[in-house]
C-alpha cells in the first residue's frame, strides 16, 4: 500500500537525517517502526505526510508511493485527502476548542455535510470523550488527549493511520487500553496502521511486522516473533540478557560506590 524507496531527507539544506530509508506497509496490517531517540522515526512519518516543509525539511532523493501514486512532493492537505493521516507526537489537541470541535476539525477534509454519525462512531471507541464532549480539550488528562488525537484521525476516515508514539507520557494501564483500541480500529475499520514507538515490547505485541531504525536507515526487519528472538533486539530494545533474565545494573552501581569510597 505504502512504499518508501531509498528516501533521503535533509533539514535546513545541511543536516542529513534519513539516509536511504526504505520500508513497506501492506494494506490492512499494523506495521511497527522502532528505534531510539533521534533515529529518524518521526522524520519518516513527516516525510510521508508532507509536514516537512514547515520545518525546513525536504525529501531530496528516493520515492514515496501510496496505492501506486507518487506522493513525495504533494502538499499536506492533498495527502490527507488521499487517505493518509498522521497523529502527531505529543497529542497536539486544539487546546481552546471543545472535544467535539476537535473532532469536527479532524473531519475537515470529508465531503459529507453532516459528521454526527462519525462523531458517534468515535464516541463508541472512546466513551470517555463522550462524557467530556463540551469540555475544553486543553483541560483533559493526557490519556484523554491521546484518545482525542486518535479520534480526530478516525474522523477523517483514513486508509492509513500513522501514530507517532501514542504511549508517550501515559500510565501503563492507559497505554494498554489505547493499544487495544488501536488494534480494534485496525480490525473493525480496516485501517492500515503505521506505528512509531520507542516502547519496543509494546509495539512488538500488536504489530504484524516491524522495522528497526538506527541513524536514518532501517537496520533490521521481520515478524515480531523473530525479532524477539534476535540477540541484538533482546539486548538493546527489550532490555534482556542472553539468559532471558532482566539485565543487572548492580555491577555499575558497585563500581560507583567503590569509587566514592576510595576518594
Amino acid at each position: 500500500m505504502l512504499t518508501l524507496n531509498n528516501i533521503e531527507v535533509i533539514y535546513n539544506d545541511v543536516i542529513l537525517v534519513l539516509k536511504g530509508m526504505s520500508m513497506q506497509v501492506p494494506e490492512g496490517k499494523i506495521v511497527g517502526l522502532l528505534g531510539s531517540n533521534g533515529a529518524g522515526k518521526s522524520t519518516t512519518l513527516k516525510a510521508i505526510s508532507g509536514l516537512l516543509k514547515p520545518e525546513d525539511g525536504e525529501v531530496t532523493d528516493g520515492s514515496i508511493e501510496f496505492i501506486g501514486q507518487n506522493i513525495h512532493n504533494s502538499d499536506a492537505d492533498d495527502i490527507v485527502r488521499k487517505g493518509i493521516f498522521q497523529v502527531m507526537e505529543g497529542r497536539r489537541v486544539f487546546e481552546h476548542l471543545t472535544v467535539e470541535e476537535n473532532l469536527i476539525a479532524g473531519g475537515y477534509t470529508r465531503r459529507e455535510m453532516s459528521l454526527s454519525h462519525d462523531v458517534d462512531m468515535v464516541y463508541g471507541y472512546f466513551p470517555r470523550l463522550k462524557e467530556r464532549r463540551n469540555q475544553t480539550a486543553g483541560y483533559l488528562s493526557g490519556g484523554e488527549q491521546q484518545m482525542l488525537a486518535i479520534g480526530r484521525a478516525l474522523m477523517a476516515k483514513p486508509r492509513l493511520m500513522m501514530l507517532d508514539e501514542p504511549s508517550l507520557g501515559l500510565a501503563p494501564l492507559l497505554v494498554r487500553e489505547i493499544f487495544e483500541i488501536i488494534k480494534r480500529i485496525n480490525q473493525e475499520q480496516k485501517t492500515t496502521i503505521l506505528l512509531v514507538e520507542q516502547n519496543a515490547n509494546l509495539a512488538l505485541s500488536v504489530a504484524d511486522y516491524a522495522y528497526i531504525m538506527e541513524s536514518g536507515r532501517i537496520v533490521l526487519e521481520g515478524h515480531p516473533a523473530d525479532l524477539r528472538e534476535n540477540a541484538d533486539v533482546r539486548e538493546f530494545y527489550l532490555g534482556l540478557t542472553e539468559v532471558g533474565s532482566r539485565k543487572s545494573y548492580r555491577e555499575v552501581k558497585h563500581y560507583k560506590r567503590r569509587k566514592r569510597w576510595l576518594s
Partner: peptide, 18 residues
Amino acid sequence: IAMRAVADDQQAALSMGI
C-alpha cells in the same frame, strides 16, 4: 472551527488537511 484550530496549532491543523 478550522479557523480556530489554525489559531491554536498550525502544524496540527496542517496534519489534518486544513
